[in-house]
Every structure is written in C-alpha cells, then in structure tokens.
Design a protein around this nucleic acid. Structure first.
Lengths: 232, 232
DNA sequence: CAGGAACTTTGCGCTGGCGCAATGTCCGGC
DNA sequence: GCCGGACATTGCGCCAGCGCAAAGTTCCTG
C-alpha cells in the first residue's frame, strides 16, 4: 500500500475527508499499516492507549465488557471510521475492545505523530471536534431510545441504523454484508438473545426480513421497519 | 463582573482550567455575561446554535424531548461546565434544552469569537477534545448501565454521581444542594416516577437516605449505596 | 391561615420481557 | 457423509417494573 493508496483511503475517512491536499499527504506519509484477521482484536479494553487508527477496509465491532461480565456492543465501524483516538487524547486506557468481524486493514499513527499533525494543521483538530460531536449526539440519542422506548422499536431502529451505514442493495432488498448475530443485536439494544430471536422470527413471518442466519440478514420491507421504529 | 472575576471563573472551568494566563485573559475579555432565573431556559432544543456558554454560578438541567413527547434528563451542569459548544461546532441545532434549576450566571461567546480563540490558541482545542472525550466515555457508561443493569442499581449509581459532582457535606451525611425530583431521577435512569419513589422510600426506611422532599435529598450511608450500585 | 399547586407515596393488577431448557438448523472439518 | 460446535428457535413460567388511581405532604401565595 503506497502513499497514494493511503491518501485515497483518507479522502473517504471521517476525520480527514475534505481537508487540503497537503494535510492528507502529510498524514498519509506518517501512517503505518496494520492488518488483522477476522475474529482477532485490534487491542484490548484496558490496554494503554498509544495509537490512532483509521479503518481502510473491513469491519470491526466495538465491544465493552462490564465489571460484572456482561457485554455491550457500542457500534460497528467500517472504512473511514476512527478508532481509539478518544482514549489517546484523554490519556486513559482504551475503554472498549474492537473485534474484527471481517479481515481488516487499518492505518496507524502513534499518539505523538498525530499530535504533531494536529498542531501543524488546525483544521484537522476542528474536524476531530466535529466528529466527536457527532458521536456524542449519537450516544445521546441511543440513551434516549433505550431509556424510553420498548424493545421492538429499539431493535427496528438498530437494524435500520446498521443498514443505513453498511447496507447493500440486492434484488430482494437491502442486505447487511457482514454477520450480525441475534446476540449482537441483543447487546446493542439492551435486551436478550431470546427476545431478539422472537422479534426477528415474527418479522420474517411477516415478510419484513429474510435470513435466519447471522450472515445474510436482509431487509425486504424497509418502510415497515421504519413504521415500527417510529410508531408513537 | 470584571475581567478579573471572569478569569477566576475560567480558571475553574473544564475547558480552560490549567491553560496559560494569556489564553485566559483573551478568553475572558471576549466573553459576555448572561443571567437567567431559576425555572427559565437558556435556549430551546431545536434553536440554531450560535453561542458557547460556560456556567459561572448556578445549576442547569439538560433536558431532551423525544418526538413522541417523552423527556430525558441528560445531565446536570454546574460551575465550570461548558454548554452548547458541541452543536455550535457541528453547525446543527441545539439538541437539548438547558433549564436553570437555580438562578444562574454564565459567560457567553459567539461562535466566531470562540473559533478565533481556538485558532489562536491550539491548547484550547486540545482541551476541548479531551473534554468531549470525557463526555463520550460518560455516555457510553450510561448506555451500558441502562442496557444491562436493573433499576435499583441505576438509581443508586445516578444519585452517587450527582452527589460526587455536587454533594456538600452536612452533619447527617452528603446533601445534594439543589432540587432533584423523583421525576428527574426517573428521567435520568430510564424508569418511572413511581418506581423511583418506591425505591427511595425503601432506602429512607433503611436509613440510607433522608429527605422526602425534592430539595434537601441527603445521603446518610454512602457506602450502602455504593454496595447497591456495585452489586453483581 | 386558608386554599391550591406541586410533588410524593402507596396499593393493586397487569404484562413485557427475562431466564431456563429443550430442540432444531446450519456449517465446517475430518 | 458424518460429527461436533455454533447459532437460532420456541414453549413455559415468572417477576420486575409499569400504569392507574387515590390519598397524603409540603410549600407557596394571597
């Protein structure tokens, strides 16, 4: 992967998209490459935070384990997404574990390198703030959901969000191109595997969804899901 | 309130604390003052985001209303806290409404002024990122709580958090020096007024808390609350 | 100090969703 | 082609917490 290819990745990255040519070039040059296989982790929750990552290809699931052993899926991350930066900036351990759900390639910067880049290119730190702001609003919306809405609506909203970020059009509808298990959905919506399974079964019977398997989940009638997610 | 007084406020503010003298002076000079009374709002959710605020004194409750009319309390904010900035940076409407629960005085900067300050003083934007990172982790923790823990633990954790931020030692324990109604606690923990009331009643009977009134809530046995919040 | 608003308490019945456990289905490896 | 493991489905019983409704407190206002 040469600098040119790195720049191409950065152009589509949330932190860098739209920035000036020279910023991209400088950033790309100082980036290392890292490859991790499906099923392995990028780092462990609790590790000292030393690096910033941007996903070039592939997909990660960000998991947080609670002290009492429960697991929460914070989000899925794909090409262009920034990983680990918040902890590096704050100087605290990584608060969650990114697990590759596909073979994944990332760009890597050390804390010091990225700090340099930001000092030299103020627009980069502005961009970072805008991005983090987006995360904050997303999280607030999710709190609002899990605090006020019932399970069925939360599951519908979660599936729609994943599909919106990563869905691919296929002939029968919109397919989610990486495996999302019932367990994953449960850990994203704050419910149990069983309740998710029952809910999806009902939707499959209604023709809203297809795919009893964690891979190949496909939405056949998106508008019906939207109705469920938005119903008062 | 002269510049000197403003600087004193900024020294204790999360965004500015620990920064160089000249940054504080420049920031203080460009700040306006705004006063709002208990019960009134600083701005409305949905308003165009034009200003950054720092609480000088007093206290605000940040409320978010959902499309279907439910309300969520995102957090309480006190002296030193930053209000509104995330929306200004992102160029989106304010996503929530800050309501004064005490008479409150704030410092105000226009979007442009704050942008200038940040361009001139990179440490300021670094600080902003660290702060936003803190918010992100806090929100992630809260999602984890509301998604995995039962109501009693969530209420205990919420009360402890408020007390940790704002509690004052009094002879019978730690008092929360501003009114927090059962409804507020319900909207912070994602439960109902009734459940909160029942839970607190039980705790009052056990001597863990005092204060059947929304003002003057006092924690008599903090360690017992910690036990409840942490129990597996 | 009387009246009313705001807030809290509490009893009761109900139900959404959990937990368990048994069973079914798909896939990959040998 | 068979076996083992991972994942999904589904029936059943139960209970934490909700919703309603009625009554009790506390505080403010005139």
């Amino acid at each position: 992967m040469d600098t040119k290819a790195k720049i191409a990745v950065l152009e589509r990255a949330k932190l860098f998209g739209g920035l000036a040519r020279d910023v991209l070039a400088a950033s790309a040059e100082s980036a290392q490459i890292k490859l991790i296989e499906k099923g392995s982790v990028l780092f462990q929750q609790g590790d000292e935070a030393t690096s910033h990552y941007v996903v070039a290809w592939g997909r990660l699931r960000l998991d947080q384990t609670t002290p009492d052993g429960k697991n929460v899926v914070l989000r899925f991350m794909g090409p262009g997404d920034l990983v680990g930066s918040v902890a590096v900036w704050r100087g605290v351990p990584y608060p969650a574990t990114p697990l590759a759900v596909e073979d994944t390639r990332l760009l890597v910067w050390s804390a010091a390198r990225m700090m340099d880049l930001m000092q030299c290119h103020p627009p980069l730190s502005m961009k970072a703030m805008v991005m983090m702001g987006g995360r904050i609003e997303e999280l607030q919306e999710r709190i609002q959901q899990v605090a006020t809405q019932q399970v069925e609506r939360r599951i519908a909203a979660t599936i729609l969000k994943i599909a919106g970020q990563s869905g691919r059009k296929v002939e029968t509808g919109v397919e989610i191109p990486f495996p999302v298990s019932r367990q994953d959905l449960a850990e994203m919506t704050g419910t149990t595997l069983h309740t998710v399974s029952r809910t999806l079964s009902a939707w499959i019977d209604d023709g809203i969804l297809e795919g009893r398997r964690s891979s190949h989940l496909t939405i056949c009638r998106p508008h019906r899901l939207v109705e469920i997610a938005d119903q008062a």
